[in-house]
C-alpha cells in the first residue's frame, strides 16, 4: 500500500544524508509518496556546485567514503525524484538566512516550502528526521 513518507533532513553529515537518501529512494521507487524537507546544514549540499564531500561522523562513514560501490546520496536523491516522483523541498526559512533563491539549487530540488505547508501536507503520514 502506498503511504506518505515525510523525511526531514537537517544534519550535514555523510551518514545521515546517506541514510535519508537510501530511505527516500527505496520508498519512492516502491510507490510511497515521499517528501524530503531540506533545512539547516543539510540544505547547502543541494546548491549547484556545492561539494558533496560531507564530513563523516564515525566508523561507518569512513568506510563508506572509502568504498567505490556506495551510491552517493546525491544520486540516490535524484533517483528518488526521477524514478519515484519524490519531492525535495527546500526550507524557505533556511533560504532566507542563506540569501539564496530557487535558481541556486540543483534541478531536482522542488519549490521553496514553509514549515506550515510541509506539516500540513505531512499530516497522517510517517515522519523521519535525519
Amino acid at each position: 500500500m502506498a503511504q506518505k513518507m515525510n523525511i526531514v533532513c537537517v544534519t550535514g553529515t555523510r551518514e545521515k544524508l546517506q541514510m535519508a537518501a537510501m530511505i527516500a529512494s527505496v520508498a519512492a521507487a516502491t510507490g510511497d509518496e515521499v517528501s524530503v524537507f531540506l533545512s539547516m546544514n543539510a540544505l547547502p549540499y543541494f546548491l549547484k556546485g556545492h561539494t558533496q564531500d560531507a564530513p563523516v561522523e564515525g566508523e561507518l562513514g569512513t568506510l563508506m567514503a572509502q568504498e567505490k560501490g556506495v551510491p552517493s546520496f546525491k544520486v540516490l536523491f535524484q533517483q528518488a525524484v526521477e524514478l519515484g516522483d519524490a519531492k525535495l523541498l527546500p526550507c524557505s526559512m533556511a533560504m532566507d538566512i542563506m540569501k539564496i533563491t530557487h535558481d541556486d539549487f540543483d534541478p531536482e530540488v522542488g519549490p521553496a516550502t514553509g514549515l506550515t505547508r510541509f506539516l500540513s501536507d505531512a499530516e497522517g503520514g510517517q515522519m523521519l528526521t535525519f
Binding site: 537510501m22 527505496v26 521507487a29 568504498e67 560501490g69 556506495v70 551510491p71 540516490l76 533517483q79 524514478l83
Partner: peptide
C-alpha cells in the same frame, strides 16, 4: 555496488 545500488539499477 552496495545497497540500494543494485535495487535502484534494477528499477
Amino acid at each position: 555496488t552496495f545497497c540500494p545500488g543494485p535495487l535502484m539499477e534494477l528499477i
